[in-house]
Protein backbone atom coordinates (compact mmCIF):
# COMPACT_ATOMS: atom_id res chain seq x y z
CA UNK A 1 0.00 0.00 0.00
CA UNK A 2 2.89 2.35 0.72
CA UNK A 3 4.10 1.49 -2.78
CA UNK A 4 1.08 3.08 -4.34
CA UNK A 5 1.38 6.28 -2.39
CA UNK A 6 5.06 6.69 -3.31
CA UNK A 7 4.49 6.21 -7.02
CA UNK A 8 1.59 8.61 -7.07
CA UNK A 9 3.23 11.30 -4.99
CA UNK A 10 4.60 14.20 -7.03
CA UNK A 11 8.34 14.85 -7.00
CA UNK A 12 9.10 17.87 -4.77
CA UNK A 13 10.91 21.00 -5.91
CA UNK A 14 14.68 20.58 -6.11
CA UNK A 15 16.44 22.28 -3.20
CA UNK A 16 17.73 25.77 -3.94
CA UNK A 17 19.61 26.96 -0.88
CA UNK A 18 22.27 29.62 -0.39
CA UNK A 19 25.57 27.68 -0.12
CA UNK A 20 27.87 28.07 2.91
CA UNK A 21 30.49 30.77 2.36
CA UNK A 22 34.19 30.04 2.85
CA UNK A 23 35.93 33.41 3.30
CA UNK A 24 39.16 31.74 4.49
CA UNK A 25 39.56 30.02 1.16
CA UNK A 26 39.20 33.27 -0.73
CA UNK A 27 41.82 34.98 1.41
CA UNK A 28 44.23 32.11 0.73
CA UNK A 29 43.53 32.28 -2.98
CA UNK A 30 44.21 36.01 -2.98
CA UNK A 31 47.56 35.52 -1.24
CA UNK A 32 48.53 32.76 -3.68
CA UNK A 33 47.55 34.95 -6.62
CA UNK A 34 49.80 37.76 -5.42
CA UNK A 35 52.70 35.34 -4.90
CA UNK A 36 52.18 33.86 -8.37
CA UNK A 37 52.11 37.31 -9.91
CA UNK A 38 55.36 38.18 -8.12
CA UNK A 39 56.97 35.00 -9.43
CA UNK A 40 55.89 35.59 -13.03
CA UNK A 41 57.06 39.21 -12.74
CA UNK A 42 60.45 37.97 -11.56
CA UNK A 43 60.75 35.51 -14.47
CA UNK A 44 59.84 38.12 -17.05
CA UNK A 45 61.66 41.19 -15.83
CA UNK A 46 64.86 39.92 -14.25
CA UNK A 47 67.60 39.92 -16.90
CA UNK A 48 69.85 37.58 -14.94
CA UNK A 49 67.76 34.65 -16.10
CA UNK A 50 69.15 35.28 -19.61
CA UNK A 51 66.33 33.41 -21.30
CA UNK A 52 67.81 33.94 -24.74
CA UNK A 53 71.00 32.19 -23.54
CA UNK A 54 68.85 29.25 -22.44
CA UNK A 55 66.45 29.04 -25.35
CA UNK A 56 67.58 31.09 -28.34
CA UNK A 57 71.22 31.87 -28.84
CA UNK A 58 74.29 30.58 -27.01
CA UNK A 59 77.78 31.72 -27.98
CA UNK A 60 76.66 33.32 -31.25
CA UNK A 61 74.88 30.12 -32.21
CA UNK A 62 71.27 29.97 -33.29
CA UNK A 63 70.29 27.58 -30.50
CA UNK A 64 69.97 28.09 -26.78
CA UNK A 65 72.18 26.18 -24.38
CA UNK A 66 69.37 23.67 -23.76
CA UNK A 67 69.50 22.48 -27.35
CA UNK A 68 73.21 22.42 -28.16
CA UNK A 69 74.72 19.15 -29.35
CA UNK A 70 76.68 18.09 -26.25
CA UNK A 71 73.75 18.90 -23.96
CA UNK A 72 71.34 16.88 -26.11
CA UNK A 73 73.90 14.04 -26.10
CA UNK A 74 73.98 14.35 -22.33
CA UNK A 75 70.18 14.22 -22.25
CA UNK A 76 70.24 11.01 -24.28
CA UNK A 77 72.81 9.58 -21.86
CA UNK A 78 70.68 10.51 -18.87
CA UNK A 79 67.61 8.83 -20.34
CA UNK A 80 69.61 5.73 -21.32
CA UNK A 81 71.19 5.57 -17.89
CA UNK A 82 67.78 5.86 -16.22
CA UNK A 83 66.35 3.06 -18.34
CA UNK A 84 69.28 0.65 -17.96
CA UNK A 85 69.80 1.19 -14.25
CA UNK A 86 66.07 0.87 -13.56
CA UNK A 87 66.00 -2.32 -15.65
CA UNK A 88 68.81 -3.75 -13.54
CA UNK A 89 67.13 -2.49 -10.39
CA UNK A 90 63.72 -3.97 -11.19
CA UNK A 91 65.02 -7.29 -12.55
CA UNK A 92 67.41 -7.87 -9.68
CA UNK A 93 64.87 -6.48 -7.23
CA UNK A 94 62.26 -9.08 -8.19
CA UNK A 95 64.84 -11.87 -7.80
CA UNK A 96 65.93 -10.51 -4.42
CA UNK A 97 62.33 -10.18 -3.24
CA UNK A 98 61.54 -13.78 -4.20
CA UNK A 99 64.74 -14.90 -2.45
CA UNK A 100 63.84 -12.90 0.62
CA UNK A 101 60.47 -14.65 0.83
CA UNK A 102 62.00 -18.09 0.25
CA UNK A 103 61.53 -20.60 3.06
CA UNK A 104 65.25 -21.35 2.67
CA UNK A 105 67.12 -19.44 5.39
CA UNK A 106 70.34 -19.03 3.39
CA UNK A 107 68.63 -17.53 0.34
CA UNK A 108 66.61 -15.11 2.43
CA UNK A 109 69.63 -13.98 4.47
CA UNK A 110 71.67 -13.36 1.33
CA UNK A 111 68.86 -11.16 0.04
CA UNK A 112 68.69 -9.40 3.39
CA UNK A 113 72.46 -8.76 3.44
CA UNK A 114 72.28 -7.34 -0.07
CA UNK A 115 69.55 -4.85 0.76
CA UNK A 116 71.27 -4.00 4.04
CA UNK A 117 74.53 -3.13 2.26
CA UNK A 118 73.19 -1.21 -0.70
CA UNK A 119 70.66 0.77 1.28
CA UNK A 120 73.31 1.81 3.78
CA UNK A 121 75.76 3.24 1.21
CA UNK A 122 75.09 6.72 -0.22
CA UNK A 123 74.69 6.64 -3.99
CA UNK A 124 77.25 9.34 -4.56
CA UNK A 125 79.89 7.37 -2.64
CA UNK A 126 78.87 4.21 -4.46
CA UNK A 127 79.12 5.91 -7.86
CA UNK A 128 82.64 7.18 -7.20
CA UNK A 129 83.62 3.80 -5.72
CA UNK A 130 82.45 1.97 -8.83
CA UNK A 131 84.35 4.46 -10.97
CA UNK A 132 87.51 3.39 -9.16
CA UNK A 133 86.70 -0.30 -8.90
CA UNK A 134 89.02 -1.18 -11.78
CA UNK A 135 91.92 -0.69 -9.36
CA UNK A 136 91.16 -4.17 -8.01
CA UNK A 137 91.66 -6.16 -11.21
CA UNK A 138 93.64 -5.83 -14.41
CA UNK A 139 91.17 -7.89 -16.41
CA UNK A 140 87.61 -9.00 -15.77
CA UNK A 141 85.79 -11.78 -17.58
CA UNK A 142 83.82 -15.00 -17.54
CA UNK A 143 85.34 -18.36 -16.79
CA UNK A 144 86.29 -20.91 -14.19
CA UNK A 145 86.39 -19.36 -10.74
CA UNK A 146 89.63 -19.75 -8.75
CA UNK A 147 91.38 -20.91 -11.92
CA UNK A 148 94.85 -19.87 -10.68
CA UNK A 149 94.44 -21.72 -7.39
CA UNK A 150 93.15 -24.81 -9.20
CA UNK A 151 96.15 -24.60 -11.53
CA UNK A 152 98.51 -24.39 -8.55
CA UNK A 153 96.81 -27.41 -7.02
CA UNK A 154 97.60 -29.51 -10.09
CA UNK A 155 101.01 -27.95 -10.61
CA UNK A 156 100.17 -26.06 -13.79
CA UNK A 157 101.74 -22.61 -13.98
CA UNK A 158 99.48 -19.74 -15.03
CA UNK A 159 96.52 -21.96 -15.71
CA UNK A 160 93.91 -19.79 -17.43
CA UNK A 161 90.27 -20.77 -17.10
CA UNK A 162 88.87 -17.58 -18.61
CA UNK A 163 86.70 -17.97 -21.70
CA UNK A 164 86.37 -14.28 -22.31
CA UNK A 165 87.89 -11.30 -20.59
CA UNK A 166 88.36 -7.60 -21.08
CA UNK A 167 90.60 -4.99 -19.53
CA UNK A 168 89.00 -3.77 -16.33
CA UNK A 169 89.74 -0.12 -17.10
CA UNK A 170 87.75 -0.41 -20.32
CA UNK A 171 84.73 -2.05 -18.73
CA UNK A 172 84.53 -0.70 -15.21
CA UNK A 173 84.65 2.99 -15.92
CA UNK A 174 82.35 5.71 -17.13
CA UNK A 175 78.90 4.68 -18.21
CA UNK A 176 79.08 1.02 -17.16
CA UNK A 177 80.39 1.87 -13.71
CA UNK A 178 77.69 4.49 -13.25
CA UNK A 179 75.00 2.14 -14.51
CA UNK A 180 76.12 -0.64 -12.15
CA UNK A 181 76.34 1.68 -9.17
CA UNK A 182 72.87 3.07 -9.72
CA UNK A 183 71.32 -0.25 -10.80
CA UNK A 184 72.70 -2.31 -7.94
CA UNK A 185 71.74 0.32 -5.41
CA UNK A 186 68.25 0.57 -6.93
CA UNK A 187 67.81 -3.21 -6.74
CA UNK A 188 67.98 -2.99 -2.95
CA UNK A 189 65.11 -0.50 -2.84
CA UNK A 190 63.12 -2.32 -5.52
CA UNK A 191 63.52 -5.58 -3.60
CA UNK A 192 61.70 -4.06 -0.63
CA UNK A 193 58.99 -2.59 -2.86
CA UNK A 194 58.42 -5.87 -4.68
CA UNK A 195 58.40 -7.80 -1.40
CA UNK A 196 55.71 -5.51 -0.05
CA UNK A 197 53.75 -6.05 -3.27
CA UNK A 198 54.04 -9.83 -3.17
CA UNK A 199 53.03 -9.93 0.47
CA UNK A 200 50.00 -7.77 -0.21
CA UNK A 201 48.43 -10.50 -2.37
CA UNK A 202 45.99 -12.72 -0.50
CA UNK A 203 47.38 -16.16 0.35
CA UNK A 204 44.14 -17.65 -1.01
CA UNK A 205 45.19 -16.63 -4.52
CA UNK A 206 48.27 -18.83 -4.35
CA UNK A 207 46.24 -21.67 -2.87
CA UNK A 208 43.61 -21.49 -5.58
CA UNK A 209 46.25 -21.43 -8.30
CA UNK A 210 48.24 -24.28 -6.79
CA UNK A 211 45.04 -26.33 -6.35
CA UNK A 212 44.50 -25.97 -10.10
CA UNK A 213 47.87 -27.60 -10.68
CA UNK A 214 49.88 -24.49 -11.55
CA UNK A 215 53.62 -24.55 -10.90
CA UNK A 216 55.21 -22.14 -8.46
CA UNK A 217 56.66 -20.10 -11.32
CA UNK A 218 53.28 -19.95 -13.10
CA UNK A 219 51.61 -18.81 -9.89
CA UNK A 220 54.16 -16.03 -9.50
CA UNK A 221 54.11 -14.97 -13.14
CA UNK A 222 50.37 -15.23 -13.86
CA UNK A 223 48.60 -14.74 -10.54
CA UNK A 224 50.66 -13.10 -7.82
CA UNK A 225 52.88 -10.63 -9.70
CA UNK A 226 50.08 -9.06 -11.78
CA UNK A 227 48.14 -8.41 -8.59
CA UNK A 228 51.23 -7.23 -6.75
CA UNK A 229 51.84 -4.73 -9.57
CA UNK A 230 49.01 -2.60 -8.25
CA UNK A 231 51.05 -2.06 -5.09
CA UNK A 232 54.43 -2.07 -6.86
CA UNK A 233 53.82 0.45 -9.65
CA UNK A 234 53.27 3.70 -7.69
CA UNK A 235 56.46 3.49 -5.60
CA UNK A 236 58.36 2.25 -8.66
CA UNK A 237 57.25 5.39 -10.47
CA UNK A 238 58.67 7.31 -7.55
CA UNK A 239 61.91 5.39 -7.82
CA UNK A 240 62.16 6.00 -11.56
CA UNK A 241 61.69 9.72 -11.11
CA UNK A 242 64.25 9.73 -8.30
CA UNK A 243 66.57 7.80 -10.61
CA UNK A 244 66.32 10.44 -13.35
CA UNK A 245 67.65 12.92 -10.85
CA UNK A 246 70.22 10.56 -9.33
CA UNK A 247 71.80 10.03 -12.75
CA UNK A 248 73.35 13.45 -12.16
CA UNK A 249 75.52 11.75 -9.52
CA UNK A 250 77.43 9.77 -12.14
CA UNK A 251 78.96 13.02 -13.32
CA UNK A 252 81.40 12.28 -10.48
CA UNK A 253 82.27 8.73 -11.65
CA UNK A 254 82.98 10.50 -14.03
CA UNK A 255 80.59 9.93 -16.91
CA UNK A 256 80.77 12.59 -19.58
CA UNK A 257 77.71 11.57 -21.62
CA UNK A 258 75.24 12.79 -19.07
CA UNK A 259 73.08 15.91 -18.81
CA UNK A 260 74.42 17.40 -15.61
CA UNK A 261 78.07 16.82 -16.59
CA UNK A 262 77.52 18.58 -19.89
CA UNK A 263 75.68 21.56 -18.48
CA UNK A 264 78.25 21.87 -15.72
CA UNK A 265 80.95 21.93 -18.36
CA UNK A 266 79.14 24.75 -20.12
CA UNK A 267 78.98 26.89 -16.99
CA UNK A 268 82.64 26.15 -16.22
CA UNK A 269 83.62 27.30 -19.69
CA UNK A 270 81.36 30.36 -20.01
CA UNK A 271 81.15 31.42 -16.35
CA UNK A 272 77.38 31.63 -16.83
CA UNK A 273 76.09 29.74 -13.83
CA UNK A 274 72.49 30.54 -13.04
CA UNK A 275 70.90 30.19 -16.52
CA UNK A 276 72.66 26.85 -16.94
CA UNK A 277 71.13 25.65 -13.69
CA UNK A 278 67.73 26.76 -14.92
CA UNK A 279 68.28 24.91 -18.19
CA UNK A 280 69.10 21.72 -16.27
CA UNK A 281 66.04 22.22 -14.10
CA UNK A 282 63.81 22.57 -17.16
CA UNK A 283 65.13 19.36 -18.74
CA UNK A 284 64.65 17.37 -15.55
CA UNK A 285 61.13 18.80 -15.26
CA UNK A 286 60.30 17.69 -18.80
CA UNK A 287 61.62 14.13 -18.37
CA UNK A 288 59.82 13.65 -15.07
CA UNK A 289 56.55 15.00 -16.48
CA UNK A 290 56.67 12.46 -19.29
CA UNK A 291 57.37 9.71 -16.77
CA UNK A 292 54.46 10.73 -14.58
CA UNK A 293 52.12 10.54 -17.55
CA UNK A 294 53.46 7.06 -18.30
CA UNK A 295 52.90 6.04 -14.70
CA UNK A 296 49.27 7.15 -14.88
CA UNK A 297 48.58 4.79 -17.78
CA UNK A 298 50.52 1.94 -16.18
CA UNK A 299 48.51 2.27 -12.97
CA UNK A 300 45.30 2.27 -14.93
CA UNK A 301 46.36 -0.92 -16.72
CA UNK A 302 47.15 -2.81 -13.51
CA UNK A 303 44.05 -1.48 -11.79
CA UNK A 304 41.89 -3.67 -14.04
CA UNK A 305 39.21 -5.50 -12.12
CA UNK A 306 39.67 -3.27 -9.07
CA UNK A 307 38.76 0.21 -10.24
CA UNK A 308 36.44 2.24 -8.08
CA UNK A 309 34.61 3.04 -11.30
CA UNK A 310 33.78 -0.61 -11.87
CA UNK A 311 32.49 -1.02 -8.36
CA UNK A 312 30.53 2.21 -8.46
CA UNK A 313 28.96 1.18 -11.74
CA UNK A 314 28.03 -2.18 -10.25
CA UNK A 315 26.46 -0.53 -7.22
CA UNK A 316 24.43 1.66 -9.51
CA UNK A 317 23.30 -1.38 -11.44
CA UNK A 318 22.27 -3.09 -8.19
CA UNK A 319 20.19 -0.09 -7.20
CA UNK A 320 18.67 -0.14 -10.65
CA UNK A 321 17.65 -3.77 -10.25
CA UNK A 322 16.31 -3.11 -6.78
CA UNK A 323 14.15 -0.29 -8.06
CA UNK A 324 12.87 -2.26 -10.99
CA UNK A 325 15.15 -0.77 -13.62
CA UNK A 326 14.03 2.83 -13.36
CA UNK A 327 17.45 4.46 -13.48
CA UNK A 328 18.54 4.34 -17.09
CA UNK A 329 21.29 6.91 -17.20
CA UNK A 330 24.18 4.45 -16.78
CA UNK A 331 26.35 3.75 -19.79
CA UNK A 332 26.57 -0.02 -20.10
CA UNK A 333 29.92 -0.31 -21.87
CA UNK A 334 32.87 -1.46 -19.78
Amino acid sequence: MSDQTTTERARPEPIKAVPVRHPGRWVTIAILAVLAAMFVHLLVTNDNFRWSFIFLSYEDGKRGVMFTGPVLEGLRGTILLTITSMAIGIGLGVILAVMRLSPNRILSSVAFLYTWFFRAVPRLVLAILFGNLNILWSRVGFGLPFDKQIGDLFGIDNFNGQFYSIRAVDLLAGFVAGMLALGLSEAAYMAEIVRAGLQSVDQGQTEAAVALGMSRFQVLRRIVLPQAMRVIVPPTGNETIAMVKDTSLVAYVPVAGELWFQLNAVSARTFVVFPVLVAALIWYLIICTVLMIGQFFLERHYGKGYGATGRARQRLRDIEVEQGGRITTTGEGT
Binding site: D202, G204, Q205, E207, A208, A209, V210, A211, L212, G213, M214, S215, I223, P226, Q227, Y302, K304, G305, Y306
Partner: peptide
Protein backbone atom coordinates in the same frame (compact mmCIF):
# COMPACT_ATOMS: atom_id res chain seq x y z
CA UNK B 1 52.31 -32.86 -6.87
CA UNK B 2 50.94 -30.36 -9.40
CA UNK B 3 50.16 -33.24 -11.73
CA UNK B 4 48.19 -35.00 -8.98
CA UNK B 5 46.27 -31.83 -8.20
CA UNK B 6 45.18 -31.32 -11.79
CA UNK B 7 42.51 -33.97 -11.51
CA UNK B 8 41.20 -32.68 -8.18
CA UNK B 9 39.04 -29.55 -8.26
CA UNK B 10 38.76 -27.38 -5.21
CA UNK B 11 36.25 -24.71 -4.28
CA UNK B 12 37.07 -22.35 -1.41
CA UNK B 13 34.98 -20.61 1.17
CA UNK B 14 36.14 -17.19 -0.02
CA UNK B 15 35.97 -18.07 -3.75
CA UNK B 16 39.59 -16.99 -4.42
CA UNK B 17 38.86 -15.97 -7.99
CA UNK B 18 41.69 -14.13 -9.72
CA UNK B 19 40.51 -10.52 -9.48
CA UNK B 20 42.70 -9.20 -12.31
CA UNK B 21 41.16 -11.55 -14.88
CA UNK B 22 37.73 -11.62 -16.41
Amino acid sequence: VAKQRRSIGMVFQRFNLFPHMT
